[in-house]
Amino acid sequence: MPLADVGDLSWSWNIGADLQGLFAYHFMVNAFRAGTIVAIAAAVIGWFMVIRGESFVGHTLALVGFPGAAGATLLGVSATFGFFVFSIAAALIIALLPRGNSVRGFSEESAVVGTVQAAALASGFLFISLYHGFLNGVNALLFGSFLGVTDSQVLTLFVLGAAAVIILALTGRPLLFASIDGDVAAANGVPVRWLSSLFLVLLGVAAAEASQITGTLLVFALLVVPAATAQILTPHPLKSLALAVGLGLGITWAGLTAAYYSPYPVGFFITSFAFAAYLLVRIGQGHPWRRAFQHEAKQAPA
């Protein structure tokens, strides 16, 4: 359907009419439904992820979703399916890998992560080039798209997102305990290892969900930024959790609206709004950049 049918697709500052125009199409309603579900699930799970310092694990899980989605498209299955299967499978593999034998230390670990990321992206590229005429799909998978979200996709996102959030709500207290002080939690009988594996799977779900809106490369915007920003603003756990959800929703809705009324991609707007929110809060904290660097320099081994 040509978009020109609505007649007026430009932002007019007549907010009522603009909002009406926004929801004139079913695809846009679905985009907002999906965006809302994703923003909530990603903010809640991302909040725990930031506390646990697992941001790059989340990023990696999202990147692994890319060959999944590309492979699913090649096989004629929904890309949503591929995202979830690959991200959750990767989370399980990471959870099962033996850890603690860091004889080689961090430098080799980051080299392994880098190699795995590059290999995952290369496989995704292979699937895409095997599936001819999919070049525009590359950008959608990597950088997000809000077009063509179907009713069944919204349902899938809702069921998996809701399940993840409910599981997290049930395990939230011990998980928080284990995240803040693993040794004490273990001494108190909290199954730390089991909880962290469970959390990785939830993180896989969240990364796959966020990938559908922001694309695999930009999940940081919905997974990390709302939580990191909220945790700067307030130290209180429940308040900052609620704040993270609010920020995630605000960023997503504003990004979708801006993308609808402009020719530029949704991934750009969502990352820009997220980055702006984070920057504003950090600037409000004094000289945060310098402090962050000094903090790191102090922590770095001499």
Partner: peptide, 23 residues
């Protein structure tokens, strides 16, 4: 300088940089 920024800062800056690239 001598230290490194934490991973949240790095991740934020470079997610935005990629977003800018798409723009």
């Amino acid at each position: 300088a001598r230290g490194r920024a934490d991973d949240v800062v790095i991740g934020n800056v470079f997610a935005w940089l990629l977003g800018l690239g798409v723009f």
